[in-house]
Design a protein around this nucleic acid. Sequence first.
DNA 1: TTTCTGACTCGAA
DNA 2: CTTCGAGCCAGAA
Length: 109
Amino acid sequence: MRPEALSFFEKVYKVAQKIPYGKVTSYGAIAKYLGAAKSARIVGYAMNASHNKDVPAHRVVNRKGLLTGKHHFEGTNLMQQLLENEGVEVIENQIQNLESIYWDPAKEL
DNA sequence: TTTCTGACTCGAA
DNA sequence: CTTCGAGCCAGAA
């Protein structure tokens, strides 16, 4: 592998694809894992461009467990339904019991 | 080439 | 309690 040759986006995609079923993580957690803790926005931006990729963007939320990116999914609650379909409880765009299903790449990988 | 914006986060006032 | 600024990368105009 040549991680250095991969763009930030590609790294983000790889990590996002490793998010376990029924788990969620945050943009900042991914950014930190990639060694760019202050690039959380870029992770979000990568998600924006991940529509064509096989990236479970619905499992990535902000650090509060808020579905800030749901507006970018089709419909108004697709993101929430995808999560609920995996056993994640979501209320008002806010993931419930976040600490229990939180998956930290820097910790789990 | 410069400028702007965005699915974020943290710390300071 | 709320508000604001800074830092990061990529792509479009």
